[in-house]
C-alpha cells in the first residue's frame, strides 16, 4: 500500500510478516501478526490504528528492527533489514530511522539539547548535528530551553524534544508509537501538528501507530490492524 502514487522501490516494504509467541507445550502459540504487508514511499505518511493488543507496537518494533518477525520480510529501500547483524541493525536504526515512543524516554541527566544529540553518541563532536539539533529544537518551540533538563519541561515539551532526537540524524523514516498517548489533549494536538509539519518540511516518511483516529486521520494514509491483519481504515460515521 502506498500513498498517492507508487514509486519503485518503495522506502519501506513489509511482506507477509507474522509474529507468534510460544507459550509452552500444552498451550497453542499466541499469534499476534498473521501476515501483514504494507509499503511506504519516501516522504509519505501512514497511520495505523488498532485496539490494544492488536499488535501495533509489535509491528512497529519489527519494522524498527527492535524485534524480529516469526515469518515474512521487512525491506528498506529494497534491502532486507532482518538479515543484517546486530551492529548493522543498530547502524540502520541510527542512520535511517527515528523512533518516537509513547513515553518520551528522555534521559533525565541530560539537557534538552544533549538528549537531542544522543543518537550522535559515540560519533565524537558532530558540529552539523548540533546545529541541526538547535535548529530543530527552535522549530519545535524549545529554542530557549536547550539547557533545561527533562524534569524541567512539560509533558508536551518532553515529547517534542523526543521528536527532535528522532530527527537529528536526518532519518528517512520516522516511527512513532502512540506519540500522543501520554499527553493531554492540547499537547497531543500540538505534537500531531508538529509531526505532520516535519513530515512535509523534512521529507521524512512517517509511520504512526496510535489509538487516536484524530492523529491517524492527519496522515496521508490510514490502515487498521485487527486480529493480526492489516486492512484499510474506514472512518466511522
Amino acid at each position: 500500500m502506498s500513498e498517492r502514487s507508487a514509486a519503485p522501490p518503495p522506502l519501506l516494504a513489509v511482506a507477509d510478516v507474522r509474529k507468534e509467541y510460544d507459550l509452552g507445550p500444552d498451550v497453542p502459540p499466541l499469534r499476534v501478526l498473521k501476515g501483514v504487508s504494507l509499503e511506504l514511499a519516501a516522504g509519505a505518511s501512514l497511520g495505523i490504528l488498532g485496539p490494544s493488543g492488536s499488535g501495533k507496537s509489535t509491528l512497529l518494533n519489527i519494522i524498527g528492527t527492535l524485534d524480529t518477525p516469526s515469518a515474512g520480510r521487512v525491506l528498506f529501500e529494497g534491502r532486507d533489514v532482518g538479515e543484517a547483524g546486530e551492529d548493522a541493525r543498530a547502524e540502520f536504526r541510527n542512520r535511517a530511522i527515528g523512533f518516537v515512543f509513547q513515553l518520551h524516554h528522555l534521559l533525565p541527566h541530560l539537557t534538552c539539547l544533549e538528549n537531542a544529540l544522543v543518537p550522535t553518541l559515540g560519533a565524537g563532536a558532530v558540529p552539523r548535528a548540533a546545529e541541526r539539533a538547535r535548529a530543530l529544537l527552535a522549530r519545535v518551540g524549545l529554542g530557549d530551553k536547550l539547557d533545561r533538563f527533562p524534569g524541567e519541561l512539560s509533558g508536551g515539551e518532553r515529547q517534542r524534544a523526543a521528536v527532535v532526537r528522532a530527527l537529528v540524524n536526518k532519518p528517512r523514516l520516522l516511527l512513532a508509537d502512540e506519540p500522543t498517548g501520554a499527553l493531554d489533549r492540547e499537547s497531543a494536538e500540538d505534537l500531531s501538528e508538529l509531526l505532520v509539519e516535519l513530515n512535509r518540511s523534512e521529507g521524512t516518511a512517517l509511520l504512526v501507530v496510535t489509538h487516536s483516529e484524530k492523529l491517524a486521520a492527519r496522515m496521508g494514509a490510514v490502515m487498521e490492524l485487527r486480529d493480526g491483519t492489516l486492512a484499510p481504515w474506514k472512518a466511522r460515521p
Binding site: L66, E86, D87, E91, L121
Partner: peptide, 20 residues
C-alpha cells in the same frame, strides 16, 4: 534499564552503550 533500551532503540551501537 529503559535508558539502555532507548539508546539501543536510537541505534547507539551496543559496544558504545556498554562502554558508557
Amino acid at each position: 534499564a529503559w535508558e539502555i533500551g532507548t539508546l539501543h532503540a536510537l541505534g547507539v551501537p551496543r559496544a558504545t552503550v556498554r562502554r558508557l
